[in-house]
Amino acid sequence: MKILIVDDSPLIIKRLGEFLSDLGHQVIIAYDGKESMVAYNQELPDLVFMDILMPGPDGISVMRSIISKHAKARIIIMSSMGQQSKVIEAIQYGAIDFIVKPFEPSKILLALEKATNTLS
């Protein structure tokens, strides 16, 4: 799969990116909302891991604008603990799933699986 990771933390991007590459996925990265929208339009990835809280436009609004143009976009929201209401909002606006930082590999695998299932 072609996967876009959007996060302002280089560490998250590195770790998640390496994990996904090791699984054989093609990884594209973006450090903020604006970058991610450009990247999405150019690359049309199969899946997006989107941080919920970023400088500039936050994850939810970026997600909404992507979905408004690409109805079939599949976005998994990444959040830290204590952002429950934000995550609910994200799910409500169309995120297919969420993962909570710090990640456990098994959770990422599960989310990937769910994404693959909705793909077909």
Partner: peptide
């Protein structure tokens, strides 16, 4: 699991 309310929300949704 973290964020049970989100899980619940997903179910109800």
């Amino acid at each position: 699991e973290p964020m049970p309310a989100v899980r619940g929300f997903q179910v109800l949704q």
